[in-house]
Structures are given as structure tokens and as C-alpha cells.
Amino acid sequence: MATVSLTGASQQDAATVFGVLRTAFPTDRPTDDLPKEQPGGRSTVWSAEFEPTQEWIPTDPVPLEGSVSATLQGTYLAVDRLREALGTAFAVDEQGTASGDQEKEVDLRLATKR
């Protein structure tokens, strides 16, 4: 299991990123659970958990309105599979990593592939 947290994204872009991951892997969220804006104009963090499996369905590139900051946290294998799946749909720029004994965290910047 791995957690994906999205920031700096529009509601539509967050839904797009989660839609790509939902197509590839099982998640803790129902299909109709879409990101919702919170009142008050504060920064929003959207998160969901995914269970990256050995076999997944790659997607074609998908456009985003802007760039999205994504943090992936989980086991090494789970984070690597999530990153690979995101790389099929978006341009991925790795911003940083933190490694532990059993888990790692990767910060990514996602954008439309050109």
C-alpha cells in the first residue's frame, strides 16, 4: 500500500491524476469519490491510498491544466510502481526523495507530456 498526496493542483487536475492511478491500481476510494474544493481559499491536499500490483494497465498521456505536486509514500516497490504508472501518463520531474529502512518518500512534479 502507498499513499499519494497531491498539492498545488486544481480540482480537475487532482481528479485526472487519481483517475490515472485508479485505472492502474486498486484504491481505498470508491470510483465516484472525486476531489472536492474546500471553502475558505486555503491550500488543499488531496490524498488516496493505492495498492500497486505487479500487473497494471498503462495509460496514454493525459493533459493537465497546470503542474501538480505529488508525494508518494510507501514501500520501495509500491512507490516505484506508482511512479512508473504516473510516468506513462505525465511528464514527471523528481523533486526529492527520502529513504528509510522499509519505506521511501518521493516528491514529484507532474505536468502534461509534450
Score class of each variant (00 low, 15 high):
M1Q: 06
M1N: 03
M1R: 07
A2R: 02
T3K: 08
S5Q: 11
S5Y: 01
S5N: 03
L6N: 09
L6W: 04
T7R: 15
T7V: 06
G8M: 09
Q11P: 01
Q12M: 07
A14Y: 09
T16R: 14
V17N: 13
V17C: 09
F18R: 15
L21F: 08
R22A: 13
F25W: 01
F25C: 00
D28W: 05
D28M: 05
R29I: 04
P30Q: 13
P30V: 14
P30N: 12
P30E: 13
T31K: 00
D32F: 07
D33C: 09
D33T: 06
L34Q: 04
P35T: 09
P35K: 05
K36R: 15
Q38S: 14
Q38A: 15
P39Y: 04
G40T: 12
G40P: 11
G40Y: 11
R42S: 11
T44D: 13
V45A: 13
V45N: 13
W46M: 03
E49I: 07
F50T: 02
E51R: 01
E51I: 02
P52D: 10
P52F: 05
Q54F: 01
Q54H: 07
W56F: 15
W56K: 01
I57W: 04
I57D: 05
P58A: 08
P58D: 07
D60N: 10
P61E: 15
P61C: 11
V62F: 06
V62W: 10
P63F: 10
P63D: 07
G66K: 10
G66E: 14
S67L: 02
S67M: 05
V68D: 07
V68W: 03
S69D: 06
T71Q: 02
T71E: 00
T71G: 00
Q73K: 02
T75A: 12
Y76H: 14
Y76M: 06
L77F: 09
L77W: 08
V79W: 03
D80M: 08
R83A: 14
E84H: 11
E84G: 04
A85V: 05
L86T: 14
G87R: 05
G87Y: 08
G87M: 06
G87K: 13
T88R: 14
T88Y: 15
F90I: 06
F90P: 08
D93A: 11
D93W: 02
D93T: 10
E94G: 02
E94K: 07
S99Y: 10
S99G: 14
G100T: 14
G100N: 09
G100L: 12
D101V: 06
Q102H: 12
Q102D: 15
Q102P: 00
Q102L: 11
Q102G: 07
E103K: 04
E105M: 06
E105W: 02
V106Y: 02
D107L: 08
L108K: 09
R109I: 02
A111V: 03
T112H: 10
T112P: 03
K113F: 03
K113L: 11
K113S: 14
R114C: 02
R114Q: 11
R114K: 09
